[in-house]
Design a binder for these strands. Sequence first.
RNA 1: UGUCGGGUCGUCUAAUAGGCAGGACGCCAGAAUUUGGAUCUGGAAAUAGAGGUUCGAAUCCUCUCCUGACAACCA
Length: 557
Amino acid sequence: MEAEKESLNFIEQIIESDLVTNPTKKVHTRFPPEPNGYLHIGHAKSICLNFGVGAKYNGQTNLRFDDTNPVTEETEYVDSIKEDIRWLGFDWEDREYYASDYFQQLYDMAEKLIQKGKAYVDDSDAETMATQKGTPTEPGVHSQFRNRTVEENLDLFRKMKAGAFEEGTRVLRAKIDMASTNMLMRDPVIYRIKYATHHRTGDEWCIYPMYDFAHGQSDAVEEITYSLCTLEFENHRPLYDWFIQELEIFPSRQIEFARLNVDYMITSKRKLKQLVDEGIVSGWDDPRMPTISGMRRRGYTPASLRTFCDKVGIAKRENTIEMSLLEYCVREDLNKIAPRIMAVLDPVKLVITNLAADYQETMLVENNPEQPDEGSREVFFSRTIYIERSDFMEDPPKKYFRLGPDRKVRLKGAYIIHCTHFEKGADGKVDSIYAEFVPNSKSGEDTSGVKVKGTIHWVDAQTALDAEVRLYDRLFLDPTPDNHPDKSFLDFINPDSMDILQRVKLEANYKKAGTSRHFQFLRKGYFFEDYNSSTKAIVFNRTVTLRDSWAKLQQKI
RNA sequence: UGUCGGGUCGUCUAAUAGGCAGGACGCCAGAAUUUGGAUCUGGAAAUAGAGGUUCGAAUCCUCUCCUGACAACCA
């Protein structure tokens, strides 16, 4: 426990070591999403890291939209990203920036590079440039336009900006080294012509900087001291540093860490968009999506996601986290805060034959045993109740602690009942169960001396509310659905990822259990009331089941 | 065949100047229990391999093996 608290991840170690050398160094980070999709669990890790490190070392964290590609970026995404970060519990205060805010500065930097003879306009088409680039094992060759004069380059670049050329006919390239072993240093393209309307700058620009000429430069403008990104940018670091040196700008330091992977989930924005566009899920916030908005709708809490991001750690090795860790984190949080109510997902009628037909009683049931201060609520009880179909077996095995013919069980918060007989319907399924309550066995005042091993939940039939409950399971059947070279991730879609239950029986007073929209349905799991739920049509989403040691035992028998 | 990364329990992750390989999830067993939940106790479980340096190596050196990224006018 203590060791866990004290150990620093490698980024914190770098920072603390810098702070020893330079105690006044500011820790300034940024979270730099591209607004071309919704944020997902992987972004949550980056958000927690960047904002977490900023806060830990009394620094600041900027939100910066990396919006340099007008073709894919939209305001809808900007809005959802901001909502998701706030919901996760982080605050960028007034530091909401856009790379597009820096277009003029970026342009000026490009001219500076041209002036220094370190950039040139290339008229080659994309195919020629690709060919000339060489391969990882063979050096590239120089473009015929590489030795244009500064004046010619400046003139052409200004014309590019002025809209004198067709899209795709010219680019600006950094002049570095076509023989570098790092492909990114082989005269990378830094500006391209695009006649597209930008979500913020409109048609003001027809040339746009590439990632490598926008990200690091934006870091410099904002004086970001630690630019934390994922491993795939490792090869970009020499280029990042080259621009700092040639442009003589603020020396931000790029540090790469391994992205988060969770088994049975995908985090490719392109593929998530495909799930949405093809209608495989209901939208970006479908509760089966690994998006922050999807998990929010599913019933995950900000705290549980933050705990998860903390527990997965920060390192450089590739990793795949088991989903059980995520589930552990959400159960741990919900166990503390979710009021308990009783809901019967798959109801079967049970008649207590030694009660009068008009018998009525209210039982006091605790709202949350983990929070005694939250008190109890009244739950209606009468002669006819619903119990879970799976809580009765015609011919139960010895280790089954629930109901069966001539077996006894405790009704949570009420009496012990003794099953006398049951009836089947025409379909062969159990239709009605009959039982007698044991006198003097009422919960809390039991003097009957009868001991039972099982306790089941129930809902009074007369007063029960009907609800729709959506049971969600993993969206994919394979732990790494997008890791099969010969198959599409769509081949692994779980056909049973959603099960909609229409006639769930809910206790009438469930709202009195607490103000939370998160509930624990006793013995069944944690459920979250959907934003489409209303008093006329109650809808719940299952966040996660409870751990189920009976299911495990059952598999072994 | 190149360059740059990375290999510690099943999965993540520690071991901060070379000094008892620790924690978490999961798993197994038990206790307790009016949720087969939560809780509590205990357990099994790892340094990719081979050499070398050293009193002592996950850590330093050499070789081997495995693995990821890189040849978009995407980010």
